[in-house]
């Protein structure tokens, strides 16, 4: 039986983890490799690294970081943030990333999705969608959620699947940071509209939220950041709880 995945997300700036981290036993809280290794030990199913600055001078730092992550961890990981061209993808894959995630750049130039999928396969091609419910419609936002687009979220999800995306990372901006639970409605709408896996993101505040996500939607993974960083929800406790709730979990 295929298991539902629990995915911690690490925001990276200049090669360091941002957002505070208060894990006991990690000497250098800003070091993403230490944190990644900790998550692997705890049973994380995959990791996502998002470069939130993504400036040109930071690309080399990111590439070096990806190389070190690939040397140290033995589970799959996705790298996203600031990927605009097939060359950006080449560098990250060569450094050892298993998947890359594109967001604003794919809205700007949708062929980028096809280019990545043709070169590296659709399993390598993650499209991140930031969505917000406004005026009675779920719309796609870009540039870290700052810029609205005219795209309807479900339509865009269908389109990226056709273009070759192998997975969708769907973040509800209405829910992100609220700790009030995942956006179940749009997660299920997108999951039903496409036949590729959907990772739900935004709003996880406690272990019950993951149970609700997996019971009420067909999302194949749940992603969160701060609740794992701060150990408000520890991964082993979460996975044990979900097993008791009869969710298929590794």
């Amino acid at each position: 039986m295929l298991k539902k995945r629990i995915i911690p997300c690490l925001d990276i700036k200049g090669g360091r983890t941002v957002k505070g981290i208060n894990f006991v036993g990690i000497k250098d809280a800003g070091n993403p490799i230490e944190l990644a290794k900790r998550y692997v030990q705890q049973g994380a199913d995959e990791l996502v690294f998002l470069d939130i600055t993504a400036t040109i001078e930071n690309r080399k730092t990111l590439k070096d970081l990806v190389k070190r992550i690939a040397q140290e961890i033995n589970i799959p990981f996705t790298v996203g943030g600031g990927i605009n061209t097939a060359e950006d993808v080449d560098q990250l894959i060569a450094a050892g990333a298993d998947k890359v995630s594109v967001n604003s750049s794919a809205v700007k130039r949708p062929e980028l999705i096809t280019e990545i999928a043709q070169q590296y396969g659709n399993q390598c091609t993650v499209v991140a969608i930031d969505t917000k419910f406004e005026n009675n419609e779920w719309k796609v936002f870009v540039h870290g959620g700052r810029t609205p687009t005219e795209l309807n979220t479900v339509d865009w999800a269908r389109h990226v699947e056709q273009l070759g995306a192998g997975e969708i990372l769907l973040t509800s901006m209405n829910n992100d940071g609220t700790k009030a639970g995942f956006a179940l409605d749009i997660t299920e709408q997108v999951s039903q509209a496409v036949n590729i896996p959907v990772i739900a993101s935004g709003g996880a505040g406690n272990k019950e939220h993951f149970n609700e996500l997996f019971k009420k939607t067909s999302a194949t993974a749940g992603l969160a950041a701060s609740i794992f960083h701060y150990e408000e929800v520890a991964i082993p406790t979460l996975k044990e709880y979900l097993k008791q709730q009869n969710i298929n979990i590794r």
Binding site: K3, R5, P197, T220
Partner: peptide
């Protein structure tokens, strides 16, 4: 869902 993506026994 295809690809078959994730952990399976």
């Amino acid at each position: 869902k295809v690809p078959h993506m994730g952990w399976n026994n």
